[in-house]
Amino acid sequence: MLSRLADSLYWMSRNIERAENNSRVLSGHLIHMVEVSDEGIADRDWGEILEICASKADYDQLYNRIDREAIIQYLMMSPLNINSSMNCMLYARENAKATRDIIPDDLWEVLNHFHLSQKDWQELPNTRQHTQEYLKEVIKTSMTAQGVIESTMSRGIPYTFIKVGKWLERAEKTARVLNVVCEKNRREAPHKTSNYYYWLKALHFLNGYDGYIKEHPPSMESKHVLNFMIKESTFPRSIRYCIDHVSDAIQNLESGKVSHYSEDLFQMLELVKEEIEQTSIEQMDMEELMKFLDHFQDRCQTVSRMFSETYYLIEPVHVR
Protein backbone atom coordinates (compact mmCIF):
# COMPACT_ATOMS: atom_id res chain seq x y z
CA MET A 1 0.00 0.00 0.00
CA LEU A 2 1.12 3.55 -0.75
CA SER A 3 2.64 5.28 2.23
CA ARG A 4 0.51 8.35 1.64
CA LEU A 5 -2.65 6.29 1.83
CA ALA A 6 -1.50 4.50 4.96
CA ASP A 7 -0.84 7.88 6.51
CA SER A 8 -4.32 9.11 5.53
CA LEU A 9 -5.99 6.03 6.99
CA TYR A 10 -4.05 6.42 10.20
CA TRP A 11 -5.09 10.06 10.56
CA MET A 12 -8.64 9.48 9.44
CA SER A 13 -8.97 7.01 12.25
CA ARG A 14 -7.25 9.18 14.85
CA ASN A 15 -9.47 12.10 13.95
CA ILE A 16 -12.68 10.10 14.18
CA GLU A 17 -11.62 8.81 17.56
CA ARG A 18 -10.57 12.25 18.74
CA ALA A 19 -13.87 13.80 17.65
CA GLU A 20 -15.78 11.12 19.50
CA ASN A 21 -13.72 11.37 22.68
CA ASN A 22 -13.75 15.15 22.82
CA SER A 23 -17.47 15.25 22.16
CA ARG A 24 -18.10 12.80 24.96
CA VAL A 25 -16.00 14.83 27.38
CA LEU A 26 -17.76 18.06 26.52
CA SER A 27 -21.18 16.47 26.60
CA GLY A 28 -20.46 14.81 29.95
CA HIS A 29 -19.18 18.02 31.41
CA LEU A 30 -22.23 19.98 30.31
CA ILE A 31 -24.41 17.50 32.14
CA HIS A 32 -22.39 17.34 35.34
CA MET A 33 -21.53 21.00 35.52
CA VAL A 34 -25.05 21.71 36.69
CA GLU A 35 -24.08 20.40 40.08
CA VAL A 36 -21.29 22.90 40.59
CA SER A 37 -22.35 26.25 41.95
CA ASP A 38 -19.06 27.86 42.99
CA GLU A 39 -17.88 30.22 40.22
CA GLY A 40 -14.19 29.63 40.90
CA ILE A 41 -14.51 25.88 40.74
CA ALA A 42 -16.61 26.10 37.61
CA ASP A 43 -13.89 28.13 35.86
CA ARG A 44 -11.22 25.69 36.92
CA ASP A 45 -13.32 22.79 35.65
CA TRP A 46 -13.56 24.46 32.27
CA GLY A 47 -9.82 24.93 32.21
CA GLU A 48 -9.43 21.21 32.73
CA ILE A 49 -11.85 20.40 29.95
CA LEU A 50 -9.78 22.58 27.64
CA GLU A 51 -6.67 20.75 28.75
CA ILE A 52 -8.27 17.40 27.93
CA CYS A 53 -9.84 18.32 24.58
CA ALA A 54 -7.46 20.86 23.13
CA SER A 55 -4.79 23.15 24.41
CA LYS A 56 -5.58 25.70 27.09
CA ALA A 57 -2.64 27.80 25.96
CA ASP A 58 -4.09 28.06 22.45
CA TYR A 59 -7.44 29.05 23.87
CA ASP A 60 -5.90 31.69 26.11
CA GLN A 61 -4.22 33.25 23.11
CA LEU A 62 -7.57 33.77 21.43
CA TYR A 63 -9.72 34.69 24.40
CA ASN A 64 -8.64 36.60 27.45
CA ARG A 65 -10.83 34.83 29.96
CA ILE A 66 -12.71 31.66 30.71
CA ASP A 67 -16.09 32.08 29.12
CA ARG A 68 -18.41 29.14 29.09
CA GLU A 69 -20.15 29.81 25.78
CA ALA A 70 -16.88 30.66 24.09
CA ILE A 71 -15.35 27.38 25.26
CA ILE A 72 -18.30 25.30 24.12
CA GLN A 73 -18.12 26.90 20.71
CA TYR A 74 -14.34 26.55 20.65
CA LEU A 75 -14.48 22.83 21.37
CA MET A 76 -17.47 22.09 19.24
CA MET A 77 -17.28 24.00 15.97
CA SER A 78 -14.51 26.56 16.02
CA PRO A 79 -12.50 26.57 12.80
CA LEU A 80 -9.65 28.06 14.85
CA ASN A 81 -9.29 25.00 17.05
CA ILE A 82 -7.63 22.14 15.18
CA ASN A 83 -9.09 19.75 17.72
CA SER A 84 -12.68 20.99 17.59
CA SER A 85 -15.14 18.21 16.84
CA MET A 86 -16.04 19.90 13.59
CA ASN A 87 -12.43 20.12 12.44
CA CYS A 88 -11.63 16.53 13.44
CA MET A 89 -14.62 15.32 11.44
CA LEU A 90 -13.58 17.49 8.52
CA TYR A 91 -10.03 16.10 8.55
CA ALA A 92 -11.41 12.60 8.86
CA ARG A 93 -13.55 13.15 5.78
CA GLU A 94 -10.67 14.67 3.81
CA ASN A 95 -8.53 11.68 4.70
CA ALA A 96 -11.36 9.35 3.75
CA LYS A 97 -11.72 11.19 0.46
CA ALA A 98 -8.05 10.65 -0.25
CA THR A 99 -8.45 6.92 0.39
CA ARG A 100 -11.82 6.35 -1.20
CA ASP A 101 -10.50 3.66 -3.44
CA ILE A 102 -9.53 1.47 -0.47
CA ILE A 103 -12.08 2.14 2.26
CA PRO A 104 -15.58 0.65 2.11
CA ASP A 105 -18.08 2.89 0.31
CA ASP A 106 -20.29 2.73 3.38
CA LEU A 107 -17.56 4.25 5.52
CA TRP A 108 -17.20 7.14 3.12
CA GLU A 109 -20.96 7.62 3.10
CA VAL A 110 -21.13 7.75 6.89
CA LEU A 111 -18.50 10.49 7.05
CA ASN A 112 -19.90 12.30 4.05
CA HIS A 113 -23.36 12.25 5.55
CA PHE A 114 -22.07 13.99 8.65
CA HIS A 115 -20.29 16.53 6.51
CA LEU A 116 -23.42 17.30 4.52
CA SER A 117 -25.39 17.94 7.69
CA GLN A 118 -22.66 20.06 9.27
CA LYS A 119 -23.92 23.24 7.65
CA ASP A 120 -27.42 22.76 9.06
CA TRP A 121 -25.97 22.32 12.53
CA GLN A 122 -24.02 25.53 12.22
CA GLU A 123 -27.15 27.44 11.38
CA LEU A 124 -29.09 26.24 14.42
CA PRO A 125 -29.40 28.63 17.37
CA ASN A 126 -26.84 28.09 20.04
CA THR A 127 -28.87 26.25 22.69
CA ARG A 128 -27.80 23.60 25.15
CA GLN A 129 -30.13 21.13 23.52
CA HIS A 130 -28.64 21.65 20.06
CA THR A 131 -25.17 21.37 21.49
CA GLN A 132 -25.98 18.04 23.07
CA GLU A 133 -27.64 16.77 19.91
CA TYR A 134 -24.65 17.76 17.84
CA LEU A 135 -22.21 16.05 20.19
CA LYS A 136 -24.36 12.95 20.18
CA GLU A 137 -24.35 13.01 16.38
CA VAL A 138 -20.55 13.12 16.34
CA ILE A 139 -20.35 10.17 18.74
CA LYS A 140 -22.89 8.21 16.76
CA THR A 141 -21.10 8.90 13.50
CA SER A 142 -17.86 7.63 14.99
CA MET A 143 -19.53 4.50 16.28
CA THR A 144 -21.27 3.84 12.98
CA ALA A 145 -17.96 4.32 11.18
CA GLN A 146 -16.33 1.79 13.47
CA GLY A 147 -19.20 -0.59 12.88
CA VAL A 148 -18.68 -0.37 9.13
CA ILE A 149 -14.95 -0.91 9.54
CA GLU A 150 -15.43 -3.96 11.74
CA SER A 151 -18.15 -5.54 9.67
CA THR A 152 -16.85 -4.95 6.17
CA MET A 153 -13.09 -4.53 6.04
CA SER A 154 -10.73 -7.40 5.44
CA ARG A 155 -8.21 -7.79 8.23
CA GLY A 156 -5.37 -6.65 6.03
CA ILE A 157 -3.00 -3.74 5.90
CA PRO A 158 -5.51 -0.87 5.55
CA TYR A 159 -7.53 -2.23 8.47
CA THR A 160 -4.41 -2.43 10.61
CA PHE A 161 -3.47 1.19 9.98
CA ILE A 162 -6.97 2.29 10.91
CA LYS A 163 -6.94 0.30 14.12
CA VAL A 164 -3.47 1.36 15.20
CA GLY A 165 -4.51 5.00 14.76
CA LYS A 166 -7.61 4.47 16.85
CA TRP A 167 -5.84 2.67 19.70
CA LEU A 168 -3.02 5.14 19.98
CA GLU A 169 -5.41 8.05 19.99
CA ARG A 170 -7.58 6.38 22.59
CA ALA A 171 -4.72 5.38 24.89
CA GLU A 172 -3.35 8.89 24.84
CA LYS A 173 -6.75 10.42 25.59
CA THR A 174 -7.37 8.02 28.45
CA ALA A 175 -4.05 9.03 29.98
CA ARG A 176 -4.90 12.71 29.54
CA VAL A 177 -8.24 12.44 31.27
CA LEU A 178 -6.81 10.42 34.15
CA ASN A 179 -3.96 12.85 34.49
CA VAL A 180 -6.27 15.81 34.89
CA VAL A 181 -8.41 13.96 37.42
CA CYS A 182 -5.35 12.83 39.42
CA GLU A 183 -4.21 16.42 39.62
CA LYS A 184 -7.61 17.49 40.86
CA ASN A 185 -7.63 14.67 43.35
CA ARG A 186 -4.27 15.60 44.73
CA ARG A 187 -5.33 19.18 45.18
CA GLU A 188 -8.68 18.46 46.77
CA ALA A 189 -7.95 15.16 48.43
CA PRO A 190 -9.49 15.89 51.85
CA HIS A 191 -13.08 16.03 50.57
CA LYS A 192 -14.18 12.47 50.27
CA THR A 193 -17.45 13.22 48.53
CA SER A 194 -16.00 15.30 45.74
CA ASN A 195 -13.51 12.52 45.28
CA TYR A 196 -16.28 10.11 44.44
CA TYR A 197 -17.74 12.58 42.08
CA TYR A 198 -14.48 13.18 40.17
CA TRP A 199 -13.85 9.55 39.45
CA LEU A 200 -17.41 9.03 38.38
CA LYS A 201 -17.00 11.87 35.97
CA ALA A 202 -13.73 10.44 34.67
CA LEU A 203 -15.46 7.18 33.93
CA HIS A 204 -18.19 9.01 32.07
CA PHE A 205 -15.64 10.95 30.06
CA LEU A 206 -13.96 7.71 29.06
CA ASN A 207 -17.16 5.79 28.47
CA GLY A 208 -16.02 3.37 31.12
CA TYR A 209 -18.79 3.68 33.68
CA ASP A 210 -20.83 0.67 32.53
CA GLY A 211 -17.80 -1.54 32.32
CA TYR A 212 -16.42 -0.43 35.65
CA ILE A 213 -19.60 -0.73 37.65
CA LYS A 214 -19.99 -4.37 36.63
CA GLU A 215 -16.58 -5.12 38.11
CA HIS A 216 -16.87 -2.96 41.19
CA PRO A 217 -20.45 -2.42 42.24
CA PRO A 218 -21.23 0.19 43.45
CA SER A 219 -18.07 1.68 44.88
CA MET A 220 -15.94 4.46 43.45
CA GLU A 221 -12.43 3.93 44.79
CA SER A 222 -9.82 6.01 42.98
CA LYS A 223 -7.37 3.10 42.87
CA HIS A 224 -10.03 0.83 41.40
CA VAL A 225 -10.92 3.31 38.74
CA LEU A 226 -7.28 3.88 37.87
CA ASN A 227 -6.54 0.20 37.80
CA PHE A 228 -9.52 -0.37 35.55
CA MET A 229 -8.63 2.39 33.11
CA ILE A 230 -4.91 1.69 33.07
CA LYS A 231 -4.42 -2.01 33.52
CA GLU A 232 -7.66 -3.84 32.75
CA SER A 233 -6.77 -6.07 29.81
CA THR A 234 -10.35 -6.77 28.76
CA PHE A 235 -11.74 -3.24 28.68
CA PRO A 236 -11.28 -1.77 25.18
CA ARG A 237 -10.62 1.76 26.33
CA SER A 238 -7.98 1.00 28.92
CA ILE A 239 -4.39 1.95 28.29
CA ARG A 240 -3.17 -1.59 28.49
CA TYR A 241 -5.79 -2.93 26.11
CA CYS A 242 -4.93 -0.29 23.51
CA ILE A 243 -1.17 -0.82 23.71
CA ASP A 244 -1.50 -4.63 23.66
CA HIS A 245 -3.59 -4.36 20.53
CA VAL A 246 -1.23 -1.96 18.81
CA SER A 247 1.56 -4.39 19.54
CA ASP A 248 -0.37 -7.43 18.28
CA ALA A 249 -1.48 -5.60 15.15
CA ILE A 250 2.08 -4.68 14.24
CA GLN A 251 3.26 -8.22 14.98
CA ASN A 252 0.64 -9.40 12.49
CA LEU A 253 1.64 -6.82 9.94
CA GLU A 254 5.20 -8.13 10.11
CA SER A 255 4.09 -11.79 10.27
CA GLY A 256 5.77 -12.09 13.64
CA LYS A 257 9.20 -11.25 12.25
CA VAL A 258 11.37 -8.44 13.53
CA SER A 259 13.28 -6.85 10.67
CA HIS A 260 15.98 -4.22 10.86
CA TYR A 261 13.54 -1.48 9.90
CA SER A 262 10.95 -2.48 12.49
CA GLU A 263 13.30 -3.33 15.32
CA ASP A 264 13.11 0.03 17.10
CA LEU A 265 9.33 0.03 16.99
CA PHE A 266 9.07 -3.46 18.42
CA GLN A 267 11.52 -2.65 21.20
CA MET A 268 9.67 0.48 22.11
CA LEU A 269 6.33 -1.32 22.25
CA GLU A 270 7.80 -4.04 24.47
CA LEU A 271 9.19 -1.38 26.76
CA VAL A 272 5.87 0.43 27.03
CA LYS A 273 4.06 -2.83 27.76
CA GLU A 274 6.57 -3.62 30.46
CA GLU A 275 6.19 -0.20 32.00
CA ILE A 276 2.44 -0.66 32.24
CA GLU A 277 2.86 -4.18 33.57
CA GLN A 278 5.25 -3.11 36.30
CA THR A 279 3.29 -0.15 37.49
CA SER A 280 1.71 -0.94 40.79
CA ILE A 281 -1.13 1.49 41.17
CA GLU A 282 -1.97 0.53 44.73
CA GLN A 283 1.43 1.62 45.88
CA MET A 284 1.62 4.95 44.09
CA ASP A 285 0.49 8.31 45.31
CA MET A 286 -1.20 10.81 43.05
CA GLU A 287 2.07 12.58 42.34
CA GLU A 288 3.66 9.38 41.09
CA LEU A 289 0.62 8.42 39.10
CA MET A 290 0.65 11.76 37.34
CA LYS A 291 4.28 11.28 36.52
CA PHE A 292 3.52 7.86 35.12
CA LEU A 293 0.63 9.19 33.02
CA ASP A 294 2.74 12.06 31.73
CA HIS A 295 5.48 9.68 30.83
CA PHE A 296 3.02 7.39 29.10
CA GLN A 297 1.70 10.26 26.96
CA ASP A 298 5.25 10.95 25.82
CA ARG A 299 5.62 7.27 25.01
CA CYS A 300 2.49 7.39 22.88
CA GLN A 301 3.99 10.19 20.84
CA THR A 302 7.23 8.28 20.46
CA VAL A 303 5.39 5.16 19.32
CA SER A 304 3.36 7.23 16.88
CA ARG A 305 6.52 8.77 15.45
CA MET A 306 8.33 5.43 15.20
CA PHE A 307 5.33 3.83 13.58
CA SER A 308 5.27 6.59 10.98
CA GLU A 309 8.97 6.25 10.33
CA THR A 310 8.86 2.48 10.03
CA TYR A 311 6.25 2.64 7.30
CA TYR A 312 7.58 5.78 5.59
CA LEU A 313 4.52 7.75 6.61
CA ILE A 314 6.75 10.72 7.27
CA GLU A 315 8.60 12.11 4.28
CA PRO A 316 12.27 11.38 4.87
CA VAL A 317 14.52 14.39 4.75
CA HIS A 318 16.13 14.62 1.33
CA VAL A 319 19.88 14.61 1.50
CA ARG A 320 21.66 15.58 -1.66
Partner: peptide, 14 residues
Protein backbone atom coordinates in the same frame (compact mmCIF):
# COMPACT_ATOMS: atom_id res chain seq x y z
CA UNK B 1 3.88 9.08 -4.42
CA UNK B 2 6.17 8.46 -7.38
CA UNK B 3 9.90 8.77 -7.75
CA UNK B 4 12.23 8.16 -10.67
CA UNK B 5 15.57 6.50 -10.00
CA UNK B 6 17.94 5.60 -12.82
CA UNK B 7 15.12 6.17 -15.32
CA UNK B 8 12.82 3.72 -13.59
CA UNK B 9 9.58 4.83 -11.96
CA UNK B 10 8.70 3.63 -8.47
CA UNK B 11 5.87 4.26 -6.05
CA UNK B 12 6.50 4.79 -2.38
CA UNK B 13 4.78 2.11 -0.33
CA UNK B 14 4.88 1.13 3.31
Amino acid sequence: DLIVKDDVVYMKTI
